[in-house]
Amino acid sequence: MQKYTVIKDHTSNYPDPIILKKDQEVLYGKEDTQFPNWIFCKSISTSKEGWVPKQVLSNPNSDGIAIISKDYSAHELTIKKGETVLGLKHLNDWTYCKTNTDELGWIPTSCLSSS
């Protein structure tokens, strides 16, 4: 874990994020052009949509359905410049962080600076 200072505000674009459990099925969509290796998926069971890292998806079958390999939440944090967060993991130019109020979520790594 590493402590970071927020150097640029970030507002969550998805207030109702896709949350997936291991072995859940999703429709495998298009890859993000700004952040490679993020795939826009739709949950078969809940119909929620959101960005999922390619690393937790199986290759899609002929119907475009992929399986989730581990639990995943697409929750993004809304943060302000000057805040400090704890970085828990990095993936595809995003960092999964914990705030001072114990909220967990993703922040673009470009918004962070090592403290």
Results as ranks from 00 to 15, higher is better:
1 M>V: 14
2 Q>N: 07
2 Q>Y: 08
3 K>I: 15
4 Y>F: 15
5 T>V: 14
11 T>D: 00
14 Y>L: 11
15 P>Y: 06
19 I>Q: 07
19 I>M: 04
20 L>S: 02
20 L>C: 03
20 L>P: 04
22 K>G: 01
23 D>P: 02
24 Q>W: 10
24 Q>G: 03
25 E>L: 11
25 E>T: 01
26 V>R: 03
26 V>T: 01
30 K>V: 05
33 T>W: 00
34 Q>S: 00
35 F>K: 01
35 F>P: 01
36 P>Y: 02
39 I>N: 15
43 S>V: 11
43 S>L: 07
44 I>W: 09
44 I>N: 06
44 I>V: 14
46 T>C: 05
47 S>I: 01
49 E>W: 00
49 E>V: 01
49 E>C: 00
53 P>E: 13
55 Q>N: 03
56 V>G: 02
57 L>W: 05
57 L>D: 02
58 S>R: 08
59 N>R: 11
59 N>E: 11
60 P>Q: 01
60 P>K: 06
63 D>Y: 09
63 D>H: 07
63 D>W: 06
63 D>S: 11
65 I>G: 02
65 I>D: 00
67 I>K: 12
69 S>A: 04
69 S>T: 10
71 D>M: 00
71 D>K: 00
72 Y>M: 05
74 A>Y: 11
75 H>P: 01
75 H>E: 06
76 E>Y: 12
76 E>R: 10
78 T>W: 02
78 T>H: 02
81 K>A: 03
81 K>W: 03
82 G>P: 09
87 G>P: 11
92 N>G: 10
94 W>A: 07
97 C>A: 11
98 K>W: 06
101 T>D: 15
105 G>W: 11
106 W>E: 12
107 I>H: 06
108 P>C: 03
109 T>Y: 03
109 T>V: 02
115 S>K: 12
115 S>W: 09
